[in-house]
Simulated assay, not measured.
Amino acid sequence: MSPRRLTLYITPVLTGRTVDSLLRRTLGLSGTVLRRMKCLEDGITLDGIRVFTSAVVQEGQTLSALVGDVERRSGIPSVPGQLELVYEDADLVVINKAPGIPSHPGPGHWDDTLGNYLLAHYDALGEPFTDFHPVHRLDKGTSGLMVAAKHAHAQEILKNQLHTPDFRRVYLAVCDGVPYPAAGTVDAPIGRVDESLIARQVRSDGLAARTRYEVIKQKNGRALLRLELETGRTHQIRVHMAHIGHPLTGDFLYGVEDHALISRPALHSAELTLRHPVTGEVLAFSAPLPTDILALL
């Protein structure tokens, strides 16, 4: 399958504009993406012929821009593995991530991550150059919806949507105890724990962090919460719930680890809404609670 291209048919309204103007303002390509395309033989074409971005277009012509990957530069190995796809098109993929799978390769996890499994999936589709372009990440223990772009242009557009109304994520979690009040906002800055590479804590010199929560069910001395992030700090939900005295059930880092109950923090990315990076269409997805979290209730 050929790398992804965006095409624009030149109508009378667009006649007389430069290629640069159309690529930036009509197709929404950034300067970074444009610079990469200019280096490719067929990166920017007009009626199939390579052109400079200063060229002026005429009615009836077709402008084409190569936005897809022409090589994999991440260095991530392609390895088949557990992968539940919720949605896929030429620009993005939405995955329902299983708990226990890291989002991205790192120390101790070089070939058993979502990134590895996605590249193997792209290979099976006949897309050997499509690389891993995560828009956001989920902790290893967190399950649920996660989106990855299929090229740098889509990744850039989607990352710019993060923490805006265009990109909305809703999490479900089970915590120890029942928060009071039953709904509220935790507004507390988060920073690293001194001398720790992983742990975070609420601290006055940390980065601003806000989490909205709502209790939607109570049972067995625990509560099922609906949560939304206004910011995106590492471990934000886990740190904020522990901060108010209600750590997530099973959270080995900020609460009490109990494998008899659940083998990971009880956190699930349940709903995801985004605006498509190319078409502008609003897409909405949901993923039900997995059985290990349901068993707590």
Rank of each mutant, 00 (worst) to 15 (best):
M1R: 13
P12L: 06
V13H: 10
T15Y: 06
L29D: 08
T32E: 14
V33P: 05
R35E: 15
C39T: 15
C39V: 15
D47S: 10
R50H: 13
S54I: 08
L63N: 14
R72H: 08
L83Q: 02
L85W: 11
E88C: 11
I95Y: 03
P99W: 00
P107G: 09
H109M: 03
A124G: 10
G126C: 10
P134L: 03
L138E: 02
G141N: 11
G144P: 03
F167N: 01
L172S: 11
V178C: 14
Y180T: 15
P181N: 07
G191N: 01
G191W: 00
R192I: 06
R192S: 12
R192C: 10
V193F: 06
E195H: 12
S196W: 00
I198D: 12
R200C: 04
S204E: 12
L207C: 06
A208E: 15
I216H: 09
G221P: 11
A223L: 11
R226G: 11
M241P: 01
A242T: 05
H246W: 08
D251M: 04
L253I: 10
Y254M: 03
V256H: 10
D258H: 03
H259D: 12
R264P: 02
S269C: 07
L274A: 00
R275G: 01
T279E: 04
A287W: 01
P288G: 07
L296K: 07
